[in-house]
């Protein structure tokens, strides 16, 4: 552990840049993922015809372990940040989509029926009723997706995306434990911190509707 801290202090700017790159990739991938998965999950909850094909695809994707998925995607998208982001989006979309869908489907039908019966427009029902009530489940998906993406980005270093995975690869190839641990421990700390923050947000959202 001492070695790790020493390595970090002697390579400060490289370390910070790696963290920034790592998080930038995560944020871009997650933003795109949410923009696709939440609306699509909502539509699937509402339209059975759409749900069946979409679920078939997402279930197929879910069977493959996430790391394997990542390497399978590599040859299709080449190397660099763009293919890494694409792969990460594909990695995380099913989780968010399925959670959004079950969150919306789990809302008591009486609530929606009385909202519509009172003359609320579809848009209003979606925004003021369904989204807040599905939020805890959506956040559950978000939480899992964040962990998947942060971990996935580490592997993305293999296809030249940069980020904290670089330390792990370098450490492994040079047989240098301190360098490898620098990458691994930082990724672990980021994951745990994000998970704790998101679980608090999720608890809050849950408390509002129960």
């Amino acid at each position: 552990m001492h070695d790790v801290l020493e390595y970090i202090s002697s390579h400060q700017s490289r370390y910070i840049n790696a963290i920034i790159t790592h998080l930038t990739i995560d944020i871009i991938a997650l933003t795109i993922c949410f923009a696709i998965a939440i609306p699509l999950g909502y539509l699937c909850a509402k339209k059975n015809k759409l749900a069946i094909p979409v679920l078939n695809v997402t279930n197929a994707l879910k069977i493959i372990p996430s790391v394997a998925k990542f390497f399978i995607l590599m040859p299709f998208f080449g190397i660099g940040i763009v293919p890494a982001v694409i792969a990460l989006v594909i990695l995380a979309v099913p989780t968010v989509l399925i959670n959004t869908m079950s969150g919306v489907q789990g809302i008591e039908p009486q609530i929606i029926e009385s909202a519509e019966g009172m003359g609320m427009s579809r848009m209003r029902v979606c925004w003021f009723v369904e989204m807040p009530l599905a939020l805890p489940m959506i956040l559950n998906g978000v939480r899992m997706a964040v962990i998947e993406v942060v971990a996935g980005t580490t592997i993305a270093s293999y296809i030249g995306a940069g980020g904290l995975g670089d330390f792990i690869i370098a450490g492994l190839s040079q047989n240098n434990r301190a360098v490898m641990l620098t990458g691994a421990v930082t990724v672990a700390v980021i994951s745990i911190a994000l998970d704790i923050i998101l679980s608090i947000v999720q608890q809050r959202a849950l408390r509002r509707i129960q």
Binding site: E108, A115, G117, M118, G119, P132
Partner: peptide, 29 residues
């Protein structure tokens, strides 16, 4: 929707919005 707002609608189990207060629920329309 305009027509429905002229009709009150009450069903079994009330169908209240659980994330809104009593006052906010009543103020829906």
């Amino acid at each position: 929707n305009e027509y429905r707002r002229k009709l009150g609608y009450v069903i079994q189990q009330a169908g209240l919005f659980p994330h809104w207060t009593v006052a906010e629920n009543i103020a829906t329309i």
